[in-house]
Computed example of a mutant assay.
Amino acid sequence: MLDDAVEAASRGDLRPASAVLADSRGDPETRSLRVEALSRTAVGASRSIEALLAHDQGNPDLWLWLGRTRLEEAWELRPDVRARAVQADRLHAYRSAMDQARQPLLAAAGLAPGDPVPWECLMWLAIGLDRPRPDKDAVWYECSRRWPALYSGALARLITLSPGWGGSAQEMLGFARSAAAHAPEGSPLPALVPMAHFEIVAAGRTPMSRGGWFSFEAQRDIVSAAGHWAERRIGGAHPRSVEAHNVFGAAFYLSDLRRPARGHLARTGGRFSRLPWSHLGDPAQQYRRACARLNL
Rank of each mutant, 00 (worst) to 15 (best):
D80W: 11
L129M: 09
S48L: 08
R233D: 00
M172K: 09
F248I: 10
E50I: 00
Q285L: 11
A226F: 04
A225R: 02
E142A: 12
D13N: 13
G110I: 02
M1E: 12
L150V: 09
H279G: 06
L14Y: 01
R267P: 00
M1I: 07
R15D: 08
R232S: 10
G236P: 03
A203R: 06
L71M: 14
R145K: 14
V35S: 05
A169D: 10
V43T: 11
D4P: 01
R220G: 00
L91Q: 14
A202L: 06
A19C: 08
S144F: 08
P184G: 07
F252A: 05
E76H: 10
R240I: 03
A51Q: 06
R157C: 08
N246W: 09
M123N: 07
Y141A: 13
S209H: 13
P207W: 04
Q170N: 07
F175Q: 02
G263F: 15
G236F: 05
R82W: 12
G44P: 02
R146D: 01
R70L: 13
M123S: 14
P260V: 12
S24L: 13
A218Q: 14
E231Y: 08
E217F: 08
V86Y: 09
L294E: 01
S144L: 09
P28Q: 13
D27N: 15
S209A: 14
L38A: 07
L155C: 09
P188G: 05
S178Q: 14
Y253H: 11
D256L: 14
P207T: 02
A8Q: 02
S224L: 13
A85G: 02
V193E: 01
R84M: 11
G110C: 07
T206C: 03
L189Y: 09
E72H: 12
P60Q: 13
A154G: 09
T69A: 02
H238S: 09
R15S: 11
P28F: 15
P190S: 04
A107E: 09
G269K: 04
P134V: 08
A230P: 00
H238A: 10
R68F: 07
H92W: 13
A181R: 15
G281L: 03
P118Q: 02
L14W: 01
N59T: 00
L53R: 02
E120F: 13
S152A: 15
P188F: 04
M98H: 07
P134H: 10
A17W: 01
R262D: 00
L64P: 01
P28L: 15
L64K: 02
A183C: 06
E231A: 14
L294N: 03
D256C: 10
D13T: 04
W147R: 14
L294F: 06
H279C: 07
T206Y: 10
G153E: 05
V6A: 13
A74H: 04
P134G: 12
A37C: 11
